[in-house]
Design a protein around this nucleic acid. Structure first.
Lengths: 213, 213
DNA sequence: TAAAAAATCCTCATTTGTGGGTATTGTGAA
DNA sequence: TTCACAATACCCACAAATGAGGATTTTTTA
């Protein structure tokens, strides 16, 4: 029987421990490592062999979505399964489009994870019921991007949204980045359009969810 | 040797599993139960005996701070140890004032948790170094409340902050609660004063951290 | 290299948010 | 039964954000 080697990427080691203990009764599944961020994962992958990466969206340094993008480019054969507490369609879509083969929610039943891992290793896709529901409901505020195409943020936009979430005013952001207030306003506008939110609250929640603050 | 019975309160069962597995090599510590919310904990306590509650700040239904307040009233002999990823002084202070005997951060070293549990069961207080640093630095924006007194939010204020975090406008909140827009503004103002933040971003982060959205 | 994407700056009208106040109820605790 | 506080409501002045236009320059990438 072929062992399935899993690396868990989660900002809390406790979660990795919990996963390992939950998968302990699955003889063919083995957690061979843990990384607390995307950057750490890429380092670890240079020394540790793995068949599947179980990765959260919310990570420091480089979030899960960016990490999956890189994984897909550098390790095409490696299977990726997203594992998060976030049900928002934005995250589910992004993960799948970047190359994940599934999306499992953290508060699902105890046997769901093992099932998802097997499904994915079998070449199929597994998405938790709640996450599917989220996809079915579509975007919250507009009908845009219903096709599901992923709109990534630019570097500059990430800088801006991060500072917005840190409660900085446009003036402060402008000064910090050596640009005019008008430019900051434009970026905020674009951010809100891309993320389909109406105001600051949506921007802050987005940044918090992805551990950018 | 007296066994120390621990109930873990965390919105993710995986974390409880992880804690149990981390404490597995501590012969006198035993995780006897898990609850995913404050409400569930109070239910469980009616049937399960415990010596110590290990509880997170971020919980659904009733957050950790409110839960500790209730615990302290209903089970005076029960020890409570806060266990969270949040380092903000606001949360540390609140937990301690409500009756917790310590505050351990989730990303601390592997042996810190067991040490903290023993310290607390010994009648002392344990606070993670980072959290102590947070206390030492005081509040972010103003010099108010430096004494550390905890300012709780009222029911109405919680309703308001929740809706603010859900990206609702003042107009919408007013309509939903059958009050005028001016009243909503007043509540927001009071909230920002109480929480020592300057704008929406702070309010949203507060609500997100405590699982109110 | 030419086209596309990103970043920059601008105006103007409108809405929302912020920071000071003040005042009237109702409720619950000392 | 006071007394404090929560919740409600209103006022004003000013700052900030939003929405809808347009435009230019740099950087990337196909």
């Amino acid at each position: 029987m072929q062992m399935i080697r899993i690396i868990v990427v989660d900002r809390h080691e406790l979660v990795a421990l919990g996963i390992a203990s939950r998968l302990a009764d699955q003889p063919e599944l083995e957690v061979v490592g843990h990384a607390c961020s995307g950057v750490k994962l890429l380092e670890r992958l240079r020394e540790t062999q793995a068949d599947l990466i179980l990765i959260d969206v919310s990570l420091h340094e480089m979030d899960g979505i960016d990490t999956v993008r890189k994984l897909h480019r550098n390790y095409p054969g490696l299977k990726v399964l997203a594992h998060s507490a976030l049900t928002e369609i934005e995250y589910v879509n992004s993960m799948l489009i970047e190359g994940a083969s599934g999306y499992v929610l953290k508060d699902g039943p105890a046997d769901e994870l093992a099932h998802a891992v097997r499904t994915v290793m079998n070449g199929d896709t597994y998405i938790s019921p709640h996450a599917q529901h989220s996809i079915a409901n579509g975007y919250r505020f507009t009908e845009k991007r219903m096709g599901g195409e992923y709109v990534g943020l630019t570097k500059r936009e990430r800088e801006i949204i991060r500072m917005v979430a840190l409660d900085r005013t446009n003036r402060e952001i402008a000064d910090a980045l050596f640009i005019t207030e008008e430019t900051v306003k434009t970026h905020r506008k674009n951010l809100m359009t891309k993320l389909n939110v109406r105001g600051v609250a949506g921007l802050v929640k987005y940044a918090v969810d992805r551990c950018w603050v």
